[in-house]
Each structure stands twice: as structure tokens, then as C-alpha cells.
């Protein structure tokens, strides 16, 4: 599904990632973990086209997608969420999700401004689609709230609903549980499993080990920019190198 091949990233002399390779299987939930500064977010930024890597390749379903900008990746079915949720704060919850359906609609500027019958029917379709994703995320009651006023946990759900509206085949989540309380985290875990059951491949960076061990099918461990280990949650938990890396962290 997604293959990371020998990615290296150097920022002005500092090597953030070095020769990282792994593959993500279709329909899996894959967790990328590692101590702070391991390069997890950098890796995400490379996969999602926000940074361009120094060397290495990213393949999506066998095709080289390295260097493609995020908007092109979205059309190829790859979306992401952000650690510090990036909502469209001045728009309502519903409108946020409607923006998610951008690639699934096509009316141009003139057609929209002139309200052609085509644009009107498309608008209907977008509206109905948005309702569906709001329901899925369980935030239908908040549809007309300005998203900037949402509590953090609800904002996270909205960001997920909005990303789902793109109808992705693969979804990358950057620390989805950050800032959530334990109950919200539990619900999030269920939601992510539901997303996988819809046939969407999920890759997540996460610090909440309980969540990662609970929902991930496979785990990749990064440390200091290199891949330290890869395997099932059980294998990772028993890996002595991983344990050492984590214990060595708080010095």
C-alpha cells in the first residue's frame, strides 16, 4: 500500500532521518512510535508532501509519489490530520467537513458564482455527504457551531470527519490522542478501528502506548532518525533495544 524506501532528511547539517524504510500493508493500522526527536513528524511531513526529502522514495500503491504536493496526494487518496488540529476556525463544523469534499466535486468559480443548476445539485450532494461524516464522527449536534469554539476533543473528531470526507484510501494521523482525556482516547481507539474496517489503511504517530498497543496491527519504532525495530505490538513490547531507547530517554 504505502512503502517508505531509504528516506534520508537533512536540515542544514542536522540529520533528522537516516535511511528509513518500511512498508504499510493495506487495511492495517500501523503505528510509528519513538522518543521525542526521533523524526516521526518529519517522516509524516515527507510522506504527506509538506517537506521534500533529501533522498529516498515514497511509493503509494506501487507508484512513486515523492515530492508530490499535498493537494495532489489528496486526490490520490492520501490524507492526514495534524498534531495541533488545523481547523478552519472561522467556519462552522459543517462547512469544515464540506471543504473535505472538495476533491469529490468540481464546480468552478464562474459556475458557483452564477449558480448554475449543476452547481446547485452539486451543493446538495456536498451537504448530504457532510451530514454522513458528521454522523459517523458523532458530532451532528455541533454542525452549526463555529469550529474555532469547539473543545479540543471535539475538534479532533471534526478533523477526522473532515479528512474522511476526502474518501481516502490511506489516512495518516499525527498524534491523534494528544490532548485527549482517557475517555476520549478510548472512543478514539474505537473510531480508528471503525475507520480501518471501512477499508481505509491507517498510519499513526502516537505517544499513548496503551492506545498504540491496543489498536495497531504493526508498529515501527524510530529512534534518533533511524528505524530501530518493526513488528507486531507483542514483538515490540519484548524488544530489548526498544525498551532501552525509551528508558534512556529521560536523562
Amino acid at each position: 500500500m504505502l512503502e517508505i524506501s531509504r528516506i534520508t532528511q537533512i536540515f542544514g547539517g542536522v540529520t533528522a532521518l537516516e535511511d528509513v524504510s518500511f512498508a504499510v500493508k493495506k487495511g492495517n493500522i500501523t503505528g510509528v512510535i519513538g522518543p521525542n526527536g526521533a523524526g516521526k513528524t518529519t517522516l509524516f511531513n515527507i510522506i504527506t508532501g509538506i517537506y521534500t526529502q533529501t533522498s529516498g522514495t515514497v511509493f503509494l500503491e506501487g507508484k512513486d509519489i515523492s515530492g508530490l504536493p499535498p493537494e495532489k496526494l489528496a486526490r490520490k487518496g492520501l490524507v492526514r490530520t495534524f498534531q495541533n488540529i488545523e481547523l478552519f476556525g472561522q467556519m462552522t463544523v459543517r462547512e469544515n467537513v464540506m471543504v473535505g469534499m472538495h476533491t469529490k466535486s468540481s464546480c468552478g468559480m464562474l459556475s458557483c458564482a452564477l449558480k448554475t443548476p449543476w452547481s446547485v445539485s452539486e451543493e446538495h450532494r456536498i451537504r448530504e455527504g457532510a451530514v454522513r461524516w458528521l454522523e459517523f464522527a458523532g458530532i451532528t449536534d455541533l454542525a452549526d457551531v463555529t469550529s474555532g469554539n469547539l473543545p479540543f476533543g471535539k475538534g479532533r473528531l471534526l478533523e477526522i470527519a473532515r479528512a474522511l470526507a476526502v474518501e481516502p484510501t490511506i489516512m495518516l494521523m499525527d498524534e491523534p490522542a494528544a490532548g485527549l482525556n482517557s475517555q476520549e482516547t478510548l472512543a478514539l481507539g474505537l473510531l480508528i478501528k471503525q475507520i480501518r474496517d471501512m477499508g481505509i489503511t491507517v498510519v499513526l504517530v502516537e505517544h499513548d502506548m496503551e492506545l498504540v498497543m491496543d489498536i495497531c496491527d504493526r508498529i515501527v519504532v524510530l529512534n534518533l532518525g533511524r528505524k530501530l525495530a518493526e513488528g507486531t505490538p507483542r514483538e515490540i513490547q519484548e524488544n530489548t533495544e526498544v525498551i532501552a531507547a525509551y528508558l534512556g530517554e529521560d536523562d
Binding site: 493537494e71 489528496a74 492526514r80 488545523e86 456536498i126
Partner: peptide, 27 residues
Amino acid sequence: NLANSRVGRALRAVHDSEVAAKVLGVN
């Protein structure tokens, strides 16, 4: 009309968070 349409929403999205708009496929 434009403000309340697909294009208008995308524009406002660019205003609020350009990177998020890109990730959702807005050029």
C-alpha cells in the same frame, strides 16, 4: 453566491489554514 459555494468555502479554508486546505486536496 460565490461565498456560499464550494469555491467560497475553499477560499475561506485557505484563509484559516492553508496547509489543512492543501491536505484536503485544495490546490
